[in-house]
């Protein structure tokens, strides 16, 4: 019977000691321990979360890079094509220009040649006239002395003329 009879002293001391214990431990042990644990768990969770975030960011960045690269490639291709086109056009134009120029030059040259030819012909005509006059003068002069010689002289002159 003693075993299951509560004794007032032990009830009193248990109650008192337990209440004091709970107050002391609450203030100096449980609160600091639990808040430290919570802080640590939070920091671990945060770290994990930010790592995940960084991973995602990285993936996004990589995708962006890929996209940029693709865009750059497309841009380059476009630019190249445009440049080729322009070059071709310029070449064509140049070619067209050049042939035109050539034709014009050829035309000019022909004209010049014609002019020169005409001028030369005119000069020749004048020269022939002069020479004819000279010959005529010389013949006239020689004729005065000898007919035969006159003829030889004329031949001579004509030979001279041919050589010229």
């Amino acid at each position: 019977m003693d075993l299951i009879t509560p004794s007032i002293g032990l009830v009193f001391w248990t109650g008192l000691v337990f209440l004091i214990l709970i107050i002391i431990l609450r203030a100096f042990a449980w609160k600091p321990i639990l808040s430290a644990l919570k802080a640590r768990e939070d920091s671990i969770e945060d770290a994990l979360k930010s790592a995940e975030l960084a991973k995602q960011e990285m993936a996004k960045l990589q995708a962006d890079n890929q996209k940029l690269l693709q865009e750059a490639r497309a841009e380059r291709d476009k630019l190249l094509k445009e440049a080729t086109d322009v070059a071709t056009k310029i070449k064509e134009e140049a070619k067209a220009d050049a042939s035109k120029q050539t034709e014009k030059m050829i035309g000019d040259a022909k004209k010049a040649i014609e002019l020169e030819k005409n001028a030369a012909l005119r000069e020749v005509t004048v020269k022939v006239a002069e020479l004819s006059l000279e010959i005529a003068e010389k013949v006239l002069r020689k004729n005065l002395s000898d007919d035969k010689e006159q003829k030889a002289l004329v031949d001579d002159y004509i030979k001279d003329l041919k050589l010229n």
Partner: peptide, 8 residues
């Protein structure tokens, strides 16, 4: 002890 467990 029943006093202890009872009090708790």
């Amino acid at each position: 002890n029943v006093s202890f467990t009872g009090t708790l």
